[in-house]
């Protein structure tokens, strides 16, 4: 079952071709890593898919049953003070269809599920501002899952975290992918780790360099060149 279909997606900013004819699709339960060098257009691709960028050619469509995507942006509200508890942030994943006092049983169940799976029980009443970087990202992933347990679009959610926090987040994402068949589209610069996690890879450098299974990707010159650059 195809969750996301992207056809010949192109983005141009001030005569600079950021993305050119990107075509790929994402199936239910698929874990797709989006890789490529810095400035290759990975974030632009994600921003286009979540309607943050509206200047594009080509097309993309989500499965009709997907009303909203669970998105974790690259730059989050990490730095500035905001009075909110972790619980308030997680529940805000329902913002699209949530009017007080109406919360459906299914929505409540999804909130409880993700809190349990990501082991966030102890953080719920703590101020979001007082959480560590890794805890904040876990809360944002939980919020994204509450918004959509069908598709998570994650733009470098582990960036700037220590190794332990990174590992914990990767495990959490893997758990949601395995247990709930949540499709994952994730940008990561940690090439060594992401190829162990994802079952498929989309490599772009303004245009499509590779799209296919991870085991095929690691045999390509593109992968070797990226790894050299990475090291």
């Amino acid at each position: 079952m195809t969750i996301l279909n992207v056809n010949n997606l192109s983005v141009k900013f001030d005569n600079a071709q950021v993305l050119k004819d990107i075509t790929f699709n994402l199936s239910k339960g698929q874990y797709l890593a989006v890789v490529g060098p810095n400035g290759a257009g990975k974030s632009t691709l994600v921003k286009t898919l979540v309607h943050e960028n509206k200047r594009y050619d080509g097309s993309f469509s989500f499965d009709k049953t997907i009303k909203t995507t669970g998105y974790v942006a690259q730059q989050n509200n990490d730095g500035s003070y905001f009075p909110a508890t972790a619980k308030e942030v997680i529940i805000s994943g329902l913002c699209r269809h949530h009017l007080l006092p109406f919360v459906s049983k299914a929505d409540k169940a999804r909130i409880n599920t993700v809190i349990e799976e990501l082991e966030l029980e102890d953080l719920l009443d703590k101020g979001y501002f007082n959480l560590s970087g890794g805890q904040k990202r876990a809360v944002l992933i939980a919020r994204a899952f509450v918004a959509s347990d069908r598709l998570l679009i994650l733009d470098e959610p582990t960036a700037g975290l220590d190794v332990t926090s990174q590992s914990r987040l990767y495990n959490s994402i893997r758990k949601l992918n395995d247990k709930y068949s949540t499709s994952i589209l994730m940008i990561s610069h940690d090439l060594e780790r992401i190829i162990k996690e994802a079952d498929s890879v989309l490599c772009i450098e303004h245009e499509l360099k590779f799209f296919g299974k991870t085991e095929d990707f690691i045999k390509t010159d593109t992968f070797k060149s990226l790894m050299e650059h990475h090291v």
Partner: peptide
Amino acid sequence: YILFYPKIFAITFDETFAKASGL
């Protein structure tokens, strides 16, 4: 305000996420 409180919180806390959620 009471009725739309969840949406008001969402746009106040994180406009980018709210927009991506279709708000």
